[in-house]
């Protein structure tokens, strides 16, 4: 299987996670570790940028489900952005757009977080 990479960018109270490659049962633990670290660091405003994500399996989707509750309880959120149509379709089939905010562009998500912070 092709590799999977996670990169994290922090700034202005928002953490952006860049996903790259295949997110499946084998690589899902890497994403879990990243989320767990963010929670430990009390960073609850999270954007997952899926621009380079080429595939996500049900195990990969499960990771978002595992952390969303804790993040929202702490007045934060996990927002998704920059999905390719193929990856979006997987999220869409499962009804993720109803449960998560999914944006075309990372910037839109940042704006949303900032707007919420002001109010």
């Amino acid at each position: 299987m092709s590799e999977f990479k996670i990169n994290q960018r922090d700034g202005e109270g928002i953490s952006v996670i860049d996903l790259k490659g295949y997110l499946d049962a084998h690589t899902a633990t890497d994403l879990e570790t990243a989320f767990q670290k963010l929670l430990n660091d009390k960073k609850y405003n999270i954007i997952v940028n899926c621009r380079d994500l080429s595939y996500i399996s049900s195990a990969g989707l499960g990771v978002f489900m595992a952390y969303i509750e804790d993040v929202r309880k702490n007045n934060g959120d996990i927002k998704l952005s920059n999905m390719s149509p193929k990856v979006y379709n997987v999220f869409d089939l499962l009804g993720f757009p109803i449960l998560y905010e999914i944006y075309k562009d990372e910037q839109e998500a940042i704006v949303k977080f900032k707007a919420k912070a002001k109010s």
């Binding site: 049900s58 195990a59 499960g62 489900m65 509750e69 499962l94």
Partner: peptide, 11 residues
């Protein structure tokens, strides 16, 4: 809802 693990779901 109650018996499923948080990260598990069924379509």
């Amino acid at each position: 809802m109650d018996s499923l693990e948080r990260r598990a779901f069924i379509s």
